[in-house]
Write a protein that binds this DNA or RNA. Structure first.
Lengths: 250, 250
DNA sequence: GAGGCTGGTTGATCTGAATCAATGCAGCAC
DNA sequence: GTGCTGCATTGATTCAGATCAACCAGCCTC
């Protein structure tokens, strides 16, 4: 069940990297009503842990998340697995398979979820009839690339605590963008999933959370997160171990 | 200057992750002659270290690499920098800025380079006149997403030595795909750039290279790399420290 | 050719996160 | 209730890679 406190979003300073991820989510701008006029758009319902698609399955549609949360993960041919991201309302799924016959990663619902199914070759057809849609599709794909790359930057330059703080603030901002509380939310994913996404081990995630709780930034009851000091969390997210030359302007 | 030995590509077993990155490069399939009919395509020449675009500059075109090498890097607002990839002939540059007024990362030529400049809003216009192009553009963007994600998987699951081996084999395969030697090539980037891309420190890259030389996999003279034992390198790239459950099928 | 500079290597040491190992705790079956 | 089972936390220890530091090889300028 979703926590949907109507707490207003406070005017907090957040890590620039975080806000840029969150802004993305708001901009997708693919309008279902518009699509309906050109495409046989269907709604599909998923149960927790049900997969929307898996690597290897035939690619036949893009999906727009309408409700619920998804985990995107990729498994290499030799069995290594990596969580690549989490998707919520308004975000696009499946675009990475465009141009291939089959999906290359897994999208799994983390709770009860609904998606709009946009049959694929038909989407391209619709694009050619409506140039506006074409622009939106490529913009949505570009946004997804930017999101991935912003995260690659985080993985390559931040330590464990900074990554966890960045992640928590990103979720906070994305919840806020959807009208939910930025202060308190439920983690839909396990610590394992978080750890994989953060390129850490789950024990490390636990320890970092314990530390953030200890210093008064957070309250965490299993998967129920309350951000007590967003300011400090933001400071941790980007400045902690920066060398003088790279220090935050903040 | 390029080393362009005409050594045939030997039928070596390579890391599946690596081949999948390399296969991408061959598939881009955006045909300049086709584009010319719809767009004012211009060729642009760059000197070593000259930037094609930088974060913050107005986004006005996509670029298709015709010759030379590029480094793609992103700098966060607080000054952290991360190399996101390297691009060579046939690969697309700038797509991540679609939908935004300005570029979000830097593309810098690593040697003398040439690109085809595809003025942007005009590309979309051309797409609507030619649905085939629309399909190719979205396929090219999807390929770029897959490339990024394959690398995220590598960063999240491989140790230093595996990453370096994977990187060297990826470069090898991409050179081969362009008709150059898979066995011997020049690294166009500094150790710093390599290290950033690999999310390591440059000292670590040096040490790993030294070790790979010591065990007879490689020969390296500054930036001139010769792969002596591709088989072994491939074995290192994916199996070395895998836990039993995750072990390579190989 | 001296001097300086950038990029690269190598060594010694330190440390953050991984690993190994227990323990706790909620939810579920029976 | 008892006993699972899966997820999460916490502690002790180890180790891969970072850090700090010295040194070297090209390469440029003068």
């Amino acid at each position: 069940m979703m926590i949907a406190c109507q707490t207003p979003i406070v005017g907090q300073r957040v890590n620039p990297a975080v806000t840029s991820i969150a802004r993305e989510a708001q901009r997708i701008g693919i309008d279902i009503e518009l699509l309906r006029r050109f495409l046989p758009v269907q709604r599909r319902q998923l149960q927790p842990d049900e997969s929307l698609y898996r690597g290897g399955q035939t690619f036949s549609a893009l999906y727009l998340v309408h409700a619920g949360f998804f985990r995107i993960a990729q498994i290499s041919e030799d069995g290594r697995e990596q969580v690549l991201g989490f998707r919520m309302r308004g975000e696009l799924l499946g675009a990475e398979a465009i141009g291939l016959p089959t999906h290359v990663c897994d999208a799994v619902a983390l709770d009860t979820a609904q998606v709009w199914e946009l049959p694929f070759p038909a989407v391209l057809q619709a694009c050619s009839e409506m140039p506006e849609l074409q622009a939106r599709l490529s913009a949505a794909m570009a946004e997804e690339m930017r999101r991935d790359r912003t995260w690659m930057l985080a993985l390559g330059t931040l330590n464990a605590e900074q990554r966890v703080a960045t992640f928590l603030l990103d979720l906070s901002a994305r919840h806020a963008a959807l009208g939910f509380s930025a202060r308190r939310y439920l983690l839909r994913m396990s610590r394992m999933d978080m750890a994989s996404y953060l390129a850490l081990k789950h024990e490390t995630v636990s320890r970092v959370l314990a530390h953030l709780i200890e210093i008064g930034c957070l309250e965490v009851q299993r998967r129920d997160v309350t951000i007590l000091d967003a300011q400090r969390l933001a400071a941790i997210a980007c400045t902690q171990t920066a060398t003088p030359a790279l220090r935050c302007a903040a």
